[in-house]
Each structure stands twice: as structure tokens, then as C-alpha cells.
């Protein structure tokens, strides 16, 4: 943590409140990621590792803080029949975390088309909101590397938004800190 971050957290838990939308196919690790982010800070092991991994139905709301920013995160379901509900959140979000299961080679194309659909939505296109792509499950065997995932998703073609890709493991928390502090930095700069 930099000095500035520390200062702002001393001054009362981060001044800026932003809404972040967590997207990604089902089973990619969105809920797990948020659980890791929300518990490591306070209760540590309260829920135990992998407490429950029930697929999300609809949406949940979680709060966490990082880099002097308070995140209000919307964790939505990635199940195919519920993906149409994502767009309900577009208008009111300040940032997007897109979680990809980097061991699920087969469905990478599905993830790509969902990502493109999201970016071309009228409520999203043209807005300069930061996009964090997590190449999740990097601990799993046969997991693709972050650059690999980036090219499979065609991230290089995104020009209207600042984006960042990093490998992560939602279970252990590895890589999450890096990604989230990038996001926090982007948001602080922008506002």
C-alpha cells in the first residue's frame, strides 16, 4: 500500500464510493473472488475456504475496499439463461471486472462473444470506464496464461476503455490484489 492509500483509509475507510459490476460466464469464479476479497480483510477464515459454491441465482451485492476506494460490487449470475439480466446494471456502473475461467478452453469463445456483446451495448460503448479482466483459476492444471487469455478474448481491439488483464486465483487470492489496485488507481485518476 502506498502512503496515499494508507492516509485515505485512516481518514475513514476510503472516500470514494464506486459501483463495480462483476461479469463472466457461470462457474468462472466471480462469487468466490468476491468472497475472498471481502473476508481476507476482516474475519479471515470465518467462512472457511470454499465455504459454499452454489451457483448464483440472479444477483448479490458485496462491498469491499481497496486502494482508498470503496467498491460496491454487483455479483451477477453467469448462467446462460440469466445473462440477459446483466444489461440492467450497465447504466449505473463505474467499472467492470470480467472473470474468465482460464482452464475452460472450450468456452473461451463464449466468454469472448459475451464480452463483445457487453462492450457494444448502448449503455457501455463510448464510456471510458475501466475494464479489469481476471484470467482466473491460474492454479488449475492446463490454465492458460494471462497474455494467452487476452488474445483469445481479442482485448487488443478495445480502444475506448482502459483495460488490464492479470492472472488470478480466486481461491487463494493470488493476483487479486494487483488487479484491484489497478482498478482503484484508474478510478481515482478519473474522478
Amino acid at each position: 500500500m502506498g502512503l496515499l492509500d494508507k492516509l485515505s483509509s485512516w481518514m475513514g475507510g476510503g472516500g470514494k464510493v464506486v459501483t463495480v459490476l462483476v461479469l463472466g460466464l457461470d462457474n468462472s469464479g466471480k462469487t468466490t473472488m468476491l468472497r475472498t476479497l471481502t473476508t481476507t480483510e476482516q474475519e479471515g477464515q470465518r467462512q472457511g475456504p470454499g465455504a459454499s459454491s452454489v451457483p448464483t441465482v440472479g444477483q448479490r451485492q458485496e462491498n469491499f475496499q481497496s486502494g482508498g476506494v470503496s467498491f460496491r460490487a454487483w455479483d451477477v449470475s453467469g448462467a446462460a439463461r440469466l445473462r440477459s439480466l446483466w444489461e440492467r446494471h450497465y447504466r449505473h456502473c463505474d467499472a467492470v471486472i470480467f472473470v474468465v475461467d482460464s482452464a475452460d478452453h472450450l468456452r473461451l469463445v463464449v466468454a469472448r462473444s459475451e464480452l463483445e456483446l457487453m462492450l457494444s451495448h448502448p449503455d457501455m460503448s463510448g464510456r471510458r470506464l475501466p475494464l479489469l479482466v481476471l484470467a482466473n483459476k491460474s492454479d488449475a492444471p492446463h490454465a492458460l496464461s494471462a497474455p494467452h487469455v487476452a488474445s483469445a478474448l481479442g482485448l487488443e481491439r478495445i480502444t475506448d476503455k482502459p483495460w488490464h488483464v492479470c492472472a488470478s486465483s480466486a481461491l487463494s487470492g493470488e493476483g487479486l490484489g494487483d488487479g484491484v489496485s489497478w482498478l482503484a488507481r484508474q478510478l481515482r485518476e478519473k474522478h
Binding site: 441465482v57 440472479g58 439480466l85
Partner: peptide, 12 residues
């Protein structure tokens, strides 16, 4: 429509 969207929030 789509009221099931709050299922996870409520189970939580």
C-alpha cells in the same frame, strides 16, 4: 418479470 434475480441476495 425476472423476479428470480434476487434469489441469491435473499438466500444470503
Amino acid at each position: 418479470q425476472d423476479v428470480i434475480i434476487v434469489t441469491s441476495s435473499l438466500t444470503k
